[in-house]
Amino acid sequence: MLDHFTLMVLHALLIAVFFAFLWKREKQERWRYFWKVFAALVLGAVALGWLMYPFPRP
């Protein structure tokens, strides 16, 4: 069973590949866009997780 973080990274990876190929034409552009989307999704989720830390579910 994969842990939640690994699943989140896999999800981010698939989304980033998809949009890089959907919206960017050149190879270099695609790589840049891929890393941007991938980092935004993974780092954004981790940041959001920490922001939610002081507000546990009742």
């Binding site: 896999l10 999800h11 698939l14 590949v17 998809f18 190929f21 959907l22």
Partner: peptide
């Protein structure tokens, strides 16, 4: 090539979703 990438991404996402 784009078709192959799109197919792979969507099928992998779908299969992982079903397995989960």
């Amino acid at each position: 090539s784009r078709a192959a990438v799109f197919a792979a991404v969507i099928v992998v996402a779908f299969v992982v979703g079903a397995l989960l």
